[in-house]
Simulated assay, not measured.
Amino acid sequence: MADQINGAIGEGSDFTNLKATTPRAWVGRDKDRAFCIGLLQHAFVKLVDALAMVRLMPLDEKQQQTRTRRIKRWAA
């Protein structure tokens, strides 16, 4: 879906499909922080699904732990 709108995500996006929110957003870039927090806090994405996405990222164990802690903090 994102490819169809030049990589942008916005109104009408299917947030139940985590791939549509782009895994890069969950890596923790400052510009994506508010977006990801909003997805979690407004229940567009479940915490369990966001954490599952981390396991799919090509990260070493320490990086995955860092991302996992960050996402849990965002969801609190």
Rank of each mutant, 00 (worst) to 15 (best):
L39C: 03
K62F: 09
A2Q: 13
V54Q: 06
H42S: 15
I37Q: 03
K72W: 06
Q41I: 08
L51K: 03
K46A: 09
K19D: 14
K31R: 09
G10K: 05
P23W: 09
M53V: 11
F44I: 00
A43S: 14
I71W: 09
V27P: 00
V27K: 09
D30F: 07
T66R: 06
I37S: 01
I5R: 13
R67S: 12
V27R: 09
A2P: 11
R70L: 14
Q64E: 14
A2E: 13
G38F: 14
R24A: 15
L47C: 03
G38D: 09
W26T: 04
A43V: 07
A52V: 02
M1C: 13
D14W: 07
A75M: 04
W74K: 01
R24H: 12
A50S: 04
L18V: 08
F44N: 04
L39M: 06
K72P: 02
G12M: 11
D3K: 08
Q63K: 11
L59H: 12
P58L: 08
R29N: 10
D60V: 09
N17W: 04
N6E: 12
K31C: 04
I9C: 05
K62I: 15
A34E: 15
Q4F: 14
D14C: 07
T66H: 09
T22R: 13
A8M: 15
D14I: 11
I5G: 00
V45N: 00
F15G: 00
G12V: 10
A8L: 14
L39S: 01
E11G: 01
L59Y: 15
R70V: 03
A76I: 02
E61Y: 00
D60G: 12
T21S: 12
R73L: 13
L59Q: 12
N17K: 13
A8T: 09
Q65N: 14
Q4C: 10
T22A: 06
A75K: 01
K46C: 00
R73Q: 14
R33H: 12
W74P: 00
V48P: 01
D14A: 12
L56F: 03
F35T: 05
W74G: 01
T16K: 15
D32C: 02
L18Q: 04
R69Y: 11
F15E: 04
D60W: 04
M53P: 00
A50W: 11
M57H: 06
R33Q: 11
